[in-house]
Amino acid sequence: MNANVEVLRVENIVKRFVTARETVTAVHHVSFTVAQGEVLAIIGPSGCGKSTLFNVIGGLVKGDEGSVAVEGRTMSGPDPAIGMVFQEESTFPWRTVADNVAFPLELAGLAKKERIERVHHYLQLVGLKGFERHHPAQLSGGMRQRVAIARTLAFAPKVLLMDEPFAALDEQTRLLLGDKVLQIQQELAQTTLLITHSIAEAVQLSDRVLVMTYRPGRVKSIVDIKLPRPRTAEIIGSKEFGQYVAEIWNDLRDEASLGMKDAEAHLPKAD
């Protein structure tokens, strides 16, 4: 990680949703930066605007205020500089594993030989060598998510943006996939922004954890994770890991309670 070189700058992002009855501010003046090779995790209670922020940074949704810049260049929509990995299963079922990973390379007009080389490289990186000709339906959920990660990485984005990429997976697969992401991130020195609702995942994978408030989503605190690298899932058993989890939960608890109370208040009441 090179803390002196800023890759992603998110500045004063505001996003409001206007309905017939009210205007809801989902994200309120959120600012942060991510340095080269750094992993920043964003954590917050359900409904704090994490996914909205993900979509605004990725350019899929236009923010009402603020800006997103990668290496000093302001983004005006989806851009190859930001690669997105989604929470839901997002591989193309009609394409083989190799063709899925080759998808952005085809769009970029890469020659077939170079395309094949890059596909093999990234499939090896995510541990899916030998599955090139399989279709996603023949793979497990964790393998499909690795295909999605390889597809995004193949485009060589400056920033890897991941929205709860392990949310649909079981606990053991999440831990193993977390290890794989750590290994890939360390190998590529990939600048990464990880959106998650799992405190353990945030501490395991990141260099800093940004805690968001409940609606409207604001930056509540940023916690530096000074656990040694390279890391594996084994770090979860360490005393320091537990201390970081406790510290973040301390920041998050009140926000999560607010979210829960709000959700309960909106439930229909029995007569």
Binding site: G58, G59, L60, G77, P78, D79, P80, I82, G83, M84, F86, E88, E89, S90, F92, F103, P104, L107, A148, F155
Partner: peptide, 12 residues
């Protein structure tokens, strides 16, 4: 599925 279209949009 919306997510597949989002993947496409993320690749511009």
């Amino acid at each position: 599925r919306k997510v597949l279209l989002d993947v496409g949009r993320s690749f511009s």
